[in-house]
Design a protein around this nucleic acid. Structure first.
Lengths: 113, 113
DNA sequence: TGCCATACATCGCACTACAAGGGGACGCCC
DNA sequence: GGGCGTCCCCTTGTAGTGCGATGTATGGCA
């Protein structure tokens, strides 16, 4: 595993949580999620379209997010995603799991030397 | 992705870092790594043999760890793993990446609401 | 006309965790 | 002896997931 590959692996599984977190604040469409993620992490976190759209469909299939086509003033359509109540519950559970995991990581990777 | 699956995904990629971290303290053999990991995380982190051994071989192939068969007083043999200097460098890099990633995760999943 | 950005989507590849299985040794209990 | 648990190493097949490449369509800009 390369160092670059490490970041890729870190993203695995966490993309779902990151998406759920962003949607917990407000409804967003696909590209908006990508941009927000990159902006809030100061360019550190980036997901490609080949990652994002399958992830959104996966979350929708599980009933964690809901999608709805929305007409813009210009007539164009955008697919807006929002969090369901089931998604909120899942997000809370994931946050707890993350906290414990992060604590364990810090304990093991940074011994009180 | 189930909640249980989330922990599995969190482990992906991080197993290598966890193994490197443990070996940075002292040389260990396979089963010892498994037990230490579980003990230090208070039972939270567990890797199966089907995860551990391929990971160790992977790290060895990359030159990050070194293995050596060691004879025990009883005559049995154990395969001891130790960190190489290349492994130390990689570990330091991974720790940095982890710190930035964890910070980004905390920022995004826990907005200053 | 060409190129880039926006916006949604799919496909194949590479990687990795894990359950399941194999092989062998030792000790304990019935 | 036979069964069971622990230790110790290992491999194989499956499932899940990020990503590059590609497709489709619209619109702005030179």
């Amino acid at each position: 595993m390369t160092l670059r590959g490490y970041l890729t692996q870190l993203l695995k599984g966490n993309t779902d949580v990151l998406i759920l977190s962003l949607l917990s604040r407000e409804s967003m469409y696909g590209h908006q999620i990508m941009k927000e993620l990159e902006r809030e992490s100061r360019g550190f976190l980036r997901v490609s379209e080949g990652t994002l759209y399958p992830a959104l469909h996966r979350l929708a299939r599980e009933g964690l997010v809901r999608s709805r086509w929305t007409k813009l003033p210009g007539g164009k359509e955008r697919k807006m995603y929002s969090l369901t109540s089931k998604g909120e519950t899942r997000l809370a559970d994931c946050r707890s799991t993350w906290d414990v995991f992060a604590a364990a990581m810090n304990t093991i990777t940074k011994p009180a030397g």
